[in-house]
Design a binder for these strands. Structure first.
Lengths: 127, 127
DNA sequence: CAGGATCCTGAGGGATACTG
DNA sequence: CAGTATCCCTCAGGATCCTG
């Protein structure tokens, strides 16, 4: 386990910026949320509620399902600390981190080509 | 338009081989079928029915929807020849071809890491 | 051959409320 | 705080039949 400084808080508009492909990205990883969760965890471990913020307050049920599936597939670890109030942290494994490569390739494509898709759609409608 | 020799027929088991990630791939491009259609077209233009073969005889409705969406987004062109019986060919555009890069990155990940996912799932079940 | 028209289902995803 | 437990609802995707 790498000794890592506390990562900066996740900005609430992390996936809501002009330079972000967001919902228009034609790629999805696994289910609807796996990709963005991956991005949220790349700087270090995060807590449950912390993750909900940039995910537009995704419902606990859906986030739990997503995290459980990713844990099952070996993409992240779930660590529960026996405290009160309870604290649980999710952290990427090496396998999960390896997913960042194809994810980056996808985001890179979006950055360079997504506007062409928008143009193509307009031309298609104009016909 | 590049002058291209007639591509080899699409093998029916193109996505049904032991070395193919297939349905286990945790990535999807756009909808369920866009990625595999992309792969089917990378060697040159293909006809409607020709595409259905490796796609396990996907129903015409679903294939039409997929192709229309990809045409609308500028990923492929649809060329109808005025013959009898009718002939229609689908061919990747430059934009569509550019999608092969992130798609390759994804497939490469699957090749090298997919078995780790299988192992992780077994360990998860064993707990 | 290349689809259009219809009908149908199931599973992913969401809202709300409650709990240790 | 970190979830469970229910209920609900859309809609991608499939089955089937028909046509220029």
């Amino acid at each position: 386990m790498i000794d890592r400084p506390t990562p900066a808080p996740l900005p609430a508009d992390l996936f809501d910026r002009p330079d972000c492909a967001g919902a228009a990205v034609p790629f999805r990883v696994g289910d609807k949320w796996t990709g963005v969760v991956l991005r949220c965890l790349e700087d270090g471990p995060r807590r449950f509620t912390e993750l909900r913020v940039p995910l537009h307050w995704i419902t606990p049920k859906v986030l739990t399902e997503t995290l459980r599936a990713m844990e099952r597939d070996g993409f992240l670890t779930r660590t529960a600390y026996d405290e009160n109030p309870p604290r649980v942290e999710y952290e990427l494994t090496g396998l999960g981190r390896s997913l960042l490569a194809p994810l980056d390739a996808t985001c890179e494509w979006s950055r360079t080509h997504l506007h062409e898709v928008a143009v193509a759609r307009e031309q298609y409608l104009a016909k």
